[in-house]
């Protein structure tokens, strides 16, 4: 008891208290399936081993933040979760990633269907410049060759959920590139919602945005986590503390990246078990 108190004092009060304010969701409280499970995931680029033996569960309907210094493999890891990793020609992988208990790397799997269920938002907003705002939101239907009867409703609901509807409802016919950076990123979120994914991966979605836009996106994340599983890579520990239920800390010591520790976010920021996690979240390195 007293030791834990001392430990808490050593932490910067802000991060721990921010994390404490975030009401953590318990796994399994949401009827959204069993979520996503990574089992012994290794990753390579050519002969370079960049990620070693990561086993991590993402309970359905929770937000998990992946934190760690640059080059620790967290972006590589998130890209193994929807098979975007293999997009790089020399990439290789070992282990399993299971969605609702089924390995997404199993032979005979249609990778496009996996990416429909596990959507992704990238670091840099990347709307399609040849399309209007409305077309951008619905582009997934066309790309994945899905049929929807009432696209107007879908368009509106996606933009509402991404927190962008009020700003763009009168300009749906304008080009996607006419929006500000933060709006573009929310447009990209809306776009990934249109194909109704179970899981949304976000790879540093706010690192190119100003604080105001960041705040809006964090609100959106909180909203979305009611209905889907979210995994977010972030360099911003404040952000991890604000938005996530669980946090996983990644680190690489000249070798492949490892997952050092995972747990409820409030615990990671107040009473980490591993010394390296403590050093990182207290700002001693990284």
């Amino acid at each position: 008891m007293s030791e834990e108190n001392q430990n808490q004092k050593a932490m910067p009060a802000s991060l721990a208290s921010v994390a404490a304010k975030h009401a953590q969701k318990q796994p399994g409280t949401n009827p959204l399936g069993t979520g996503l499970e990574a089992r012994g995931v290794h990753a390579w680029f050519g002969t370079k081993h960049v990620l070693s033996d990561v086993t991590l569960d993402f309970a359905a309907g929770t937000v998990t933040a992946l934190i760690g210094p640059s080059g620790c493999g967290k972006s590589t890891f998130i890209r193994t979760l929807n098979r975007m990793h293999e997009f790089i020609p020399t990439a290789a992988l070992a282990g399993e990633v299971r969605l609702d208990g089924k390995d997404i790397y199993a032979p005979g799997t249609d990778v496009t269907k996996i990416r429909l269920k596990i959507g992704m938002v990238f670091q840099k907003p990347n709307p399609f410049p040849s399309m209007t705002i409305g077309e951008n939101v619905l582009s997934g239907l066309k790309l994945a060759e899905l049929k929807r009867s009432n696209t107007d409703d879908l368009l509106e609901s996606c933009l509402v959920r991404a927190g962008l509807w009020n700003e763009v409802k009168d300009r749906l016919k304008e080009q996607g590139g006419s929006l500000s950076g933060g709006q573009q990123q929310r447009l990209c979120i809306a776009r990934s919602l249109a194909v109704e994914p179970q899981v949304l991966l976000m790879d540093e979605p706010c690192s190119a945005l100003d604080p105001g836009s960041t705040f809006r996106i964090e609100e959106t994340i909180a909203e979305l986590s009611q209905t889907m599983t979210i995994i977010i890579v972030t360099h911003n520990m404040q952000q991890a503390a604000r938005v996530s239920d669980y946090t996983a800390f990644f680190l690489s010591n000249d070798g492949p990246g490892l997952m050092v520790e995972t747990g409820p976010t409030s615990q990671i920021f107040s009473a980490p078990r591993d010394k390296r996690t403590e050093d990182y979240v207290t700002g001693r390195f990284g």
Binding site: M84, T112, K113, F128, L143, A144, R191, S192, V195
Partner: peptide, 9 residues
């Protein structure tokens, strides 16, 4: 990548 992440062929 954005297109592939949306389930594009």
């Amino acid at each position: 990548q954005a297109a592939f992440a949306l389930g594009a062929t």
